[in-house]
Simulated assay, not measured.
Amino acid sequence: MKFPVLQKIRRGRRAVLASCMCAALVGVAGWAYLSFLVAPRDAAIGQTQQQVAVDAAADAAVAILSYGPDTVDADLDHAHDLLTGPFADYYGTLTRDVVIPAAKEKKIDTSATVVGKAITDFSQDRANVLVFLNQSTTTADTAQPTTTSTAVRIEMERHADTWLVTKFDPA
């Protein structure tokens, strides 16, 4: 003897079970998609953005610390274009009042090269970078280059697709 009510209950349970299984399968598939396809791509984008910020900081450090006596105005104007905020104002005043006159008067020729660079903190619009540099300087009085090594902590801020220096602190 068959009980129609029990058959309906069993069919209902099977339908609920099948629905739960489908939902679980969709959930696992979604998790797998996010974990294996989307997350690695996001991580790669983050690493690429960090490298862009690090490279911009290194390039700015070289520009800030490199100039010649005959090109000092153009060299430091180029460097100023890589800065923003109060640091840009300070740098403009310092270079106009001190660096440019001294470079022209004493025939200062200085060149910086990056020997190491690393990111210390990063977000979408801000980065802190440590840049290690060697700087070679000659003057009218000393034709033999004087070489110094230094580390600089540089704070960067993203403006559209460009990273600009907001702080430049020798370590």
Rank of each mutant, 00 (worst) to 15 (best):
K2D: 10
F3W: 12
F3A: 13
F3H: 15
P4F: 02
I9K: 11
R10P: 13
R10W: 09
R10T: 09
G12I: 03
R13P: 02
R13H: 05
R13T: 05
R14N: 12
V16K: 08
A18E: 06
A18H: 13
A18Y: 10
C20N: 02
C22V: 11
A24L: 13
A24G: 00
V26G: 11
V28M: 13
V28S: 09
A29C: 14
W31H: 03
Y33R: 08
L34A: 11
L34M: 14
L34I: 09
L34C: 10
S35D: 14
F36T: 03
L37N: 14
A39K: 13
A39Y: 14
P40Y: 15
R41D: 05
R41P: 06
A43K: 13
A43Q: 15
G46P: 04
T48Q: 09
Q50T: 05
Q51H: 04
V52H: 12
V54K: 08
A60Y: 14
A60D: 00
A63E: 00
A63M: 09
L65E: 04
S66W: 02
Y67V: 05
Y67E: 01
Y67H: 06
G68Q: 01
P69V: 03
P69M: 04
P69I: 07
P69Q: 06
P69F: 02
D70H: 15
D70C: 07
D70Y: 14
T71W: 02
D73F: 10
A74K: 08
D75Y: 01
D77F: 12
D77E: 07
A79E: 01
H80R: 07
L82N: 02
L82C: 05
T84G: 10
T84I: 12
G85Q: 10
P86W: 15
P86H: 15
F87H: 02
A88M: 07
A88L: 09
A88D: 11
A88K: 07
Y91I: 06
G92N: 10
G92L: 13
L94A: 12
L94T: 13
L94D: 07
D97A: 12
I100K: 04
A102E: 02
A102P: 06
A103T: 05
K106E: 13
K106R: 11
I108V: 06
D109N: 09
S111D: 03
A112R: 04
A112I: 04
A112H: 06
T113V: 15
V114R: 06
V115K: 12
G116H: 02
G116A: 10
G116C: 09
A118R: 15
A118S: 11
A118V: 09
T120S: 01
T120V: 02
F122N: 00
S123L: 01
S123Q: 05
S123D: 05
A127H: 05
A127D: 01
A127N: 00
V129C: 04
N134C: 08
T137F: 04
T137C: 05
T138C: 01
T138E: 01
T139K: 00
A140T: 08
T142C: 07
A143R: 07
T148G: 12
T148F: 12
S149A: 10
S149I: 10
T150G: 11
T150P: 03
T150M: 08
A151S: 07
R153Y: 02
E155C: 00
E157K: 07
E157I: 00
E157G: 10
E157R: 09
H159T: 08
D161V: 09
D161S: 13
W163M: 04
L164Y: 03
L164I: 00
L164K: 15
L164S: 14
V165Y: 11
T166L: 02
K167E: 01
F168R: 00
